[in-house]
Design a binder for these strands. Structure first.
Length: 890
RNA sequence: GGGGGAUUAGCUCAGUUGGUUAGAGCGUCUGCUUGACAUGCAGAAGGUCACUGGUUCGAGUCCAGUAUCUCCCACCA
């Protein structure tokens, strides 16, 4: 093996190899237990960001784990056509040529988008491969694929025929830059430092009386068709039946009375603009007010406004100026309110009256609420369930039409002859009613989410009855960011029940978002984004994945900075070097083969086993259980921690160091046995870790020869630990484990004593140990060489009495240890140290005694807890006695 | 306005159903080129678990309140 691990070469080698060899692919015909995941499809215009890296790392860990458990795994990748985003990109390119999409016409423009997709649409799917995702690329889908488009058309027509889709003139969110309607959740509200303008509206037929309204959007004033006050507001009761004069115009508009108006806000008088505000629209409907639209599609003012052609914000200033000139403006206050922005282009959205298509959501929401309530679908972390219920129970109709060209065109046709309107999944040639051939199709396209909400079954072939659909649906786990719970997850659940009659998935796993070191969202404008590809370039994909897994809790957002990825990089290096050590030593044993240790438990001679071996084997067993438990509960971080700690601390720091002595000793039986343990446990580490770090584990698996060239660790069984009979035969007891923990404590303690006493590193010492118990004395007697080596001691003498010579000491789990030194020993300091230690332990003992003397504790606490305290008391008494005995000699 | 979350070492975070002396990584300090690994090894320092009260034999953990920070939802012009 090379001295240095070269992740770039290794990662570039394995991914194509896996893909070429169908390692990511499975078929229903193979049978077994299906495990299905659909990837949240990234936008086809997207480039890989840290959110993808986190989301896909979690998925790949789970997917690879299930695959190694022998399940029939299907992980569907793909991309989303991202209507507005993609159209924006192509329009931008057109603008560089000095053209608009209208110059090309609809069909040519759409061709142009497809061309763009062919050329650049593969960017993100290429980048995803860099992460090491084991997605089945043979099943890759695109939301505008023929099959998925068929599904979209069928769904639209079914809902249309069921009466769940309707068209109407409503107030919608309108993005003037994109020139389209937006759904409610596509609008992002942000605080805005604006103003509140107080404007006088003269009361018609009075002598100089007026009402003052407060508004944040004076440019909508020409669209006012009433002013409103609260019916119980005594200040304005006399205005019933009156009219006011709309400033800058000579229109008279009525005063209406409506509960919507808050008496305490502003002046208690509201201008009503039904065509430009959702609330005003509702007031207008209640009072039968006219709707005056004063703006164009692009955010400029129209002829009705009197400011034709002016931009809405310029108009705002112009109107304010004119109001001031006319003496209508009373005052201006600074005012902070929430202003909606387009989630795509961040333009301030307007509320605008227009004719749009909507889906009636209430009937769809019912079963979806029920599903989560009954536990057919579990959302984790659990607290999101209440968020889900809250949204679903107050669900509003979904505006699904978009005034753009790129997307699934709404399959509604109108007959030019008889006016009949109907929905059809494929383009009809004649009117089904009158037979005429003059048909026009609705010009709008569907919201992109109208295809994504079908993703769990449309990607498996629906509406065809495919084998994939029968075998892999419903999917198992849906892993995504909580930010698209409403956009996507909730709608998929509704679609799953409505169209398939079943849940689309069993578990929803919502993770947080990736933030920068200061906890800010990563964004282009802040320039604080980390690029996953740069991290891969600097540290490797394995490092990116492992570090993310290790620092990500499911409960909270993840803060990252470049330094975090050193954790994964260093761990990869550590593994590599451990592998080199194993290989070097294996070469010295003729006939030794790692292949014999790929899965079969090693044939160990119990007579040759030491407690260190037992400690490692039992810890390995525990680690297998820990990984299994963690991954079953989606606790990716716990699993990463468990394997990291075991591999680094138990395997490398402790066992490998012990093993060095054995591997260099003449006893060949023992050498073979140690090598077998190393190969077995290291093989487990590689397999346990593979879902997290697929590349380096695969490379080492092959380099050491755990498998042949044609095989892969991807399909090696996930370790489950040792059989009970094996554990019994090898004597893997908790007692042995506890003994080795005490031994480690002893080694650490002697090292610390050396360091504190300033003994040079190269010098050897001859420490004395007064064991805490006879049992310990016996066990240690058989185990002295490894301790001596670990602490660079010439000898370690087990003594029976408290020594009287002045020398530093330390109280450890194993007993009192003494370090005889030549030269000066500060007896005074030593005495003080002992006094301090005695006082500390006495404090603990007092606490324990207080508990044991507490009648309530003894009668109410469970027996094991009481026993713990008794054991603790005994232990403390022994320790204090040992310290006091030593103190007495000084 | 409604709802959620967070608050544990200098920093980033673990801490499963309440039960020995609250852990890890990074950073800091000390020593080390020891034949797997300086992307490393050995050792050390560092925490009244935000605050106040309550429940309990026992609270970082459960409950209530307070403070600060955060996110989501919502029609206050």
């Amino acid at each position: 093996m090379d001295r240095h691990y070269d992740p770039k070469a290794v990662e570039a080698k394995w991914y194509p190899w896996w893909e070429r060899n169908g390692c990511f692919h499975d078929e229903p015909s193979r049978g077994g237990k299906p495990y299905t995941v659909v990837i949240p499809p990234p936008n086809v215009t997207g480039i890989l960001h840290m959110g993808h890296a986190l989301n896909q790392t979690i998925q790949d860990v789970l997917v690879r784990w299930h695959r190694m458990r022998g399940e029939n795994v299907c992980w569907v990748p793909g991309t989303d056509h991202a209507g507005i985003a993609t159209q924006n990109v192509v329009e931008k390119a057109l603008r560089k040529e000095g053209k608009r999409r209208q110059d090309l016409g609809r069909e040519a423009f759409i061709d142009r988008v497809w061309e763009w997709k062919r050329q650049y649409g593969g960017t993100i799917v290429h980048q995803q491969r860099m992460l090491g995702n084991s997605t089945d690329w043979r099943r890759e889908r695109f939301t505008m694929d023929e099959g998925l488009s068929t599904a979209v058309a069928k769904v639209f027509c079914d809902l249309y025929d069921e009466g769940l889709i309707y068209r109407g003139n409503y107030i919608v969110n309108w993005c003037p830059r994109c020139g389209t309607a937006l759904a409610d959740d596509e609008v992002e509200h942000e605080p805005n430092a604006g103003h509140l303008w107080y404007v006088r509206y003269p009361v018609v037929g009075s002598e100089g009386e007026f009402v003052t309204v407060a508004t944040t959007r004076p440019e909508t004033l020409p669209g006012d068709t009433a002013v409103a006050v609260n019916p119980s507001d005594a200040r304005y009761a006399h205005l019933r039946g009156k009219k006011v004069l709309l400033p800058l115009t000579n229109r008279e508009i009525p005063v209406v009375f409506d509960d919507y108006v808050e008496k305490d806000f502003g002046t208690g008088v509201v201008k009503i603009t039904p065509a430009h505000d959702a609330n005003d629209f509702a007031v207008g409907q209640r009072h039968d007010l006219p709707q005056v639209d004063v703006m164009n599609d692009d955010g400029t003012m129209n002829a009705r406004s009197g400011y034709e052609g002016m931009d809405r914000f310029a108009c705002r200033e112009a109107i304010v100026k004119d109001l001031e000139k006319g003496g209508y403006l009373v005052k201006v206050e600074d005012y902070q309110n929430q202003v909606g922005h387009c989630y795509r282009c961040h333009t301030v959205v307007d509320s605008r009256l227009s004719k749009q298509w909507f889906v009636r959501m209430k009937p769809l929401a019912g079963p979806a609420i029920e599903a989560v309530r009954k536990g057919e679908i579990a959302i984790q972390p659990k607290r999101w369930e209440s968020v889900y219920f809250n949204w679903m129970e107050n669900i509003r109709d979904w505006c699904i039409s978009r005034q753009i060209w790129w997307g699934h065109r709404i399959p509604v046709y109108t007959c030019g002859a008889c006016g009949h309107e109907w929905a059809a999944p494929t383009k009809p040639t004649r009117c089904p009613k009158c037979g005429a051939a003059e048909l026009t199709q609705d010009p709008d396209v569907l919201d992109t989410w109208f295809s994504s909400w079908l993703w769990p079954f449309s990607t498996l072939g629906w509406p065809q009855k495919t084998e994939d659909l029968a075998f892999y649906y419903p999917t198992n786990d849906l892993i995504t960011g909580a930010d698209i719970l409403f956009f996507w997850v909730a709608r998929m659940i509704m679609a799953g029940y409505h169209f398939m009659g079943r849940a689309p998935f069993r578990n929803v796993i919502l993770h947080g978002i990736v933030r920068d070191a200061q906890g800010r969202k990563m964004s282009k404008s802040l320039g604080n984004s980390l690029d996953p590809l740069e991290i891969i370039d600097r540290y490797s994909a394995d490092a990116l994945r492992f570090s993310l897994a290790l620092i990500t809790s499911m409960e909270t957002d993840t803060k990252v900075d470049m330094g975090k990825f050193e954790i994964g990089r260093n761990f990869g290096t550590k593994l590599w070097n451990a592998a080199r050590f194993l290989q070097m030593n294996a070469e010295k044993l003729p006939g030794f083969s790692f292949a014999d240790h790929a899965d079969q438990p090693p044939a160990l001679d119990p007579a040759l086993l030491r407690d260190d071996d037992r400690h490692l084997l039992l810890k390995a067993h525990h680690t297998c259980a820990a990984l299994d438990a963690a991954l079953a509960k989606y606790r990716i971080q716990d699993g990463a921690l468990a394997i990291y700690d075991f591999a680094w601390t138990d395997f490398c720091d402790w066992y490998l160091e012990y093993a060095k002595a054995d591997l260099n000793a003449p006893d060949e039986k023992r050498r073979r046995q140690v090598m077998a343990i190393l190969a077995d446990v290291y093989g487990k580490i590689l397999r346990l870790l593979h879902p997290y770090m697929p590349f380096v584990t695969e490379e080492i698996w092959h380099q050491l020869g755990y498998c042949g060239e044609e095989a892969t660790i991807m399909r090696a069984p996930y370790p489950t630990g040792y059989a009970d009979a094996q554990i019994a035969a090898w004597g893997l007891t908790e007692e042995a484990l506890a003994y080795v923990e005490a031994k480690h404590d002893l080694i650490t303690g002697i090292r610390a004593l050396r360091a504190e006493a300033g003994v040079p590193p190269a010098a050897t010492v001859r420490p004395l140990l007064h064991p805490a118990s006879d049992a310990l004395r016996d066990r240690l007697t058989h185990d002295l060489p490894s301790i001596q080596t670990a602490v660079r001691a010439e000898s370690l003498t087990l003594i029976a009495d408290t020594p009287t010579d002045p020398m530093p000491s330390k109280l450890l789990k194993a007993g009192m240890v003494y370090l005889p030194l030549q030269g000066l020993v500060d007896t005074q300091a030593e005495a003080e140290k002992l006094d301090k230690e005695i006082a500390k332990l006495q404090g603990f003992l007092n606490g324990v005694n207080a508990k044991l003397n507490n009648q309530a504790f003894v009668s109410k606490a469970p027996a094991p807890i009481i026993q713990n305290q008794r054991d603790r008391k005994a232990e403390l008494e022994v320790q204090i006695a040992a310290l006091q005995a030593r103190r007495a000699t000084l």
